[in-house]
Measured scan of single mutants.
Amino acid sequence: ELREAFRLYDKEGNGYISTDVMREILAELDETLSSEDLDAMIDEIDADGSGTVDFEEFMGVMT
């Protein structure tokens, strides 16, 4: 189920989504998050600083 959700956002099928897209997902899930909260969450999610979120990083957030 998580893989299907990931595929919805990984429109190009390249195995990752951008941190911008991940930020939008988080904002949709919790509309009360401030910009600073979102920045901090993205920094934590994208631990390797690649600017992308792969499936493993995505799973870590969603579980």
Rank of each mutant, 00 (worst) to 15 (best):
L8M: 11
T52C: 06
N14Y: 06
D46K: 05
A27M: 12
T63P: 04
R3Q: 13
L38H: 01
I42N: 01
L8R: 14
N14R: 12
L38G: 01
I45E: 00
L2Y: 11
S18M: 06
G51C: 04
E24Y: 07
A5C: 15
F6Q: 02
L8C: 15
K11Q: 10
D30I: 09
E56H: 10
I45T: 04
V21E: 09
G51L: 04
V21I: 12
I42R: 00
E1H: 13
R7E: 15
K11G: 05
I45Q: 02
T52S: 08
L26F: 05
I17H: 00
Y16V: 08
I42V: 06
D39Q: 10
I25S: 00
E36M: 10
E44M: 13
M59L: 12
M59T: 07
S18Q: 05
E57I: 13
G49F: 04
L38K: 02
G13V: 06
A40R: 15
S34R: 08
L2V: 06
E44R: 14
I17R: 00
D30H: 13
L2D: 06
D10G: 02
K11P: 13
T52W: 09
R7S: 14
T63F: 05
G49P: 01
I42C: 02
F6V: 02
A47M: 10
M62A: 04
D20L: 13
D46E: 03
L38Q: 01
D39V: 04
F6A: 01
A5H: 09
F58K: 00
R3W: 15
E1V: 11
D43A: 15
G51A: 04
A47K: 15
L8K: 15
D46H: 04
G13A: 05
D10S: 02
A47V: 12
M62I: 08
K11D: 07
E12R: 04
E36F: 09
T63K: 09
A5L: 15
L2E: 04
G51F: 03
D39N: 09
F58A: 04
I45C: 04
D10V: 03
R3N: 08
M22H: 01
D39H: 06
G13D: 09
E28G: 14
G15V: 02
